[in-house]
Design a protein around this nucleic acid. Structure first.
Lengths: 334, 334
DNA sequence: CCTCCAGATGCAATCGATTGTAAATTTATT
DNA sequence: AATAAATTTACAATCGATTGCATCTGGAGG
């Protein structure tokens, strides 16, 4: 074995052609004859040669990578354990690799205001995906004015400048509440922190449904931001509520998961005494007892739409925002 | 405002110096006078100029990015919803950005054998972190022979070639079982699929503890690979076991979370009738009812160690594998 | 047998920053 | 004042691939 083939020049020498020909052969251009191309490709394979992505990126002015910005949790943990994000990342990774892009992951650093500008100026990626805009809508709009290839996951609001892809949280909330009403519930409790816009929209949906049902009322219980820490608040509500609710709409499955054992420990059966609906359709929601009725967001479709929009924008086209429909999954908890 | 400053040449012209000086000033080298450097830096700031990372990478032969390989789940979902990975990614992102590296995320594509080779040859990253080696130890060893900057999270086995960082699963398993024994349990059930090496080591630890206790026995119940799907198997075991176990060691918190409602629905109280220990110390384990006793892996420390090892290796130094100690967190479930 | 054309290949500039070394400038020394 | 020493700055090569344009080759057509 001779010395390692590092560059297309090495390979060109081996093949007895010029570097340009090697480059074209490996890129699959039709300017080289089929047989030469084949020979070069075989040679590259044999020597385990892959052209340097960095050099290519410099020349072609394309980065071959998409930046994905996610509110990743650590000890201080906000969404730290929400499986939703993990699933989303997985789906995005699939979509992006399929289209030949790498995935550059970034943490949001909340204490710096120019995090988005910095990302854009660093120019290491062809586009940006923002997962979980929460309350950054204004920041996104500001950047969206001058930077096209950026799409955000989450709520759609009238008047926003940036492009977003997400499910219709209002509709989802209404479906959940309506389902409880259809099952005969009349005193419905909403568990969740309405500060993030997505949650507020779900609450709005629930309000709309309840307002349309005779004799029904909605009790709104703001829980802690972090689902895991909200158990105490839920317990306090359950012990003080009089009369007790006969239906619960939890703004996320994680909250429902916290609530169910609390109900059980108070001798309340699900769905006998209280019916409960979650949101997200986490995998675990299917296997707990009783299996949880929930509103499902199709994450795979969402990820595909995100990437579609982004690629269109990378090509310079404008795209509108996408609002997907959520789906009611009925299980034993109602 | 004149036309956009895109390159150091543009900036050099503005500043009335050469590109080389700009480059050095921005890089903070001491070859340029302090005042010139300051002037250039101000100018760069004013024009929102950042030197191209791609060009720099090409010249310096450094990539400024670390590849993180994770078994990301999608629909077929294996670890799809395990919050452990999300937390790990978050911690790694912190450690890496702090040290000036980007995080390039990759999905494992299980059907291709050369996934690791491809990653290495693509040469887009300075090093690789493998999270969740599961059964790929041999593949890792093969690559480790020729590729230094790679560290894997997970189990350490005698004789492995590659560098790994992880907690002592044997010790963790023994601690969990010993804790149950100390609480007076004598018929202990182990719930978990022992195929992944990490789980097998936990089982081995549990065996060792039980073997050392008079009159105690260990019942090994292999559950489904995916924690979420294992409920049926656990139920089947609970209904057939005679006598019923008085202690349960779940190989992960997720499994314990599945098991607890099953126990409750059979009229078995925790910890009155059955004590139960989990593994991982997920955030939700603290807030369920009863709060779960568990074995905690310190993910933050693990992530820091992973990055430390990797950076040493990028500098060409050898490093040994690191085995961290797990910690028993006692809560109300035992 | 010569010209022409199309297809295949090579030349050389280019992407944007880094850096060894040479040149220019300033400061120190006698 | 003249030279040596030290400090700044500029020149130009380099990283490795891409690509417009020029060149070469071989066969068709006249």
């Amino acid at each position: 074995m001779s010395k390692k083939v590092r560059t297309i020049y090495d390979l060109a020498q081996l093949a007895g052609v010029s570097a340009a020909t090697v480059s074209r052969a490996l890129a699959g251009k039709d300017l080289v004859s089929a047989e030469t191309a084949e020979r070069i490709r075989k040679l590259a394979q044999a020597h385990g040669f892959r052209p340097s992505a960095v050099a290519r990126n410099l020349r072609t002015r394309r980065r071959g990578a998409i930046g994905v910005v996610i509110p990743l949790g650590h000890e201080r943990g906000q969404h730290i354990s929400d499986p939703f994000f993990m699933t989303m990342i997985g789906c995005l990774a699939d979509e992006l690799t399929e289209r030949g892009f790498d995935l550059l992951l970034s943490r949001v650093i909340p204490d710096r205001e120019d995090w988005l500008e910095a990302m854009v100026d660093a120019d290491r990626v062809d586009g940006l995906l923002i997962i979980g805009q929460s309350d950054q809508s204004a920041a996104l709009d500001a950047v969206a004015r001058r930077y096209l290839p950026m799409v955000a996951w989450g709520a759609f609001e009238q008047g926003q400048i940036h492009c977003s892809v997400g499910t219709d949280n209002f509709l989802g909330g209404r479906m959940a509440a309506q389902h409880l009403l259809d099952r005969g519930c009349r005193r419905i409790a909403f568990l969740g922190n309405p500060l993030p816009i997505e949650i507020r929209q779900r609450l709005d949906g629930a309000r709309a449904a309840v307002a349309g049902a005779a004799g029904a009322s909605l009790i709104e219980i703001p829980t802690h931001l972090t689902a895991e820490l909200s158990a105490a608040e839920i317990a306090a509500f359950l012990d003080s509520a009089d009369p007790r609710p006969d239906g619960i709409f939890a703004a996320s499955d994680l909250i429902a998961l916290n609530a169910i054992p609390l109900l059980a420990s108070r001798g309340l059966s699900v769905p006998g005494d209280v019916r409960i609906v979650g949101y997200d359709d986490l995998p675990i929601s299917r296997s707990i007892l009783p299996p949880l009725t929930t509103i499902r967001q199709d994450i795979a479709t969402g990820a595909a739409q995100l990437v579609d929009c982004l690629l269109k924008r990378i090509e310079g086209k404008q795209t509108g925002s996408v609002v997907l429909n959520p789906e009611l999954i009925v299980r034993a908890s109602t």
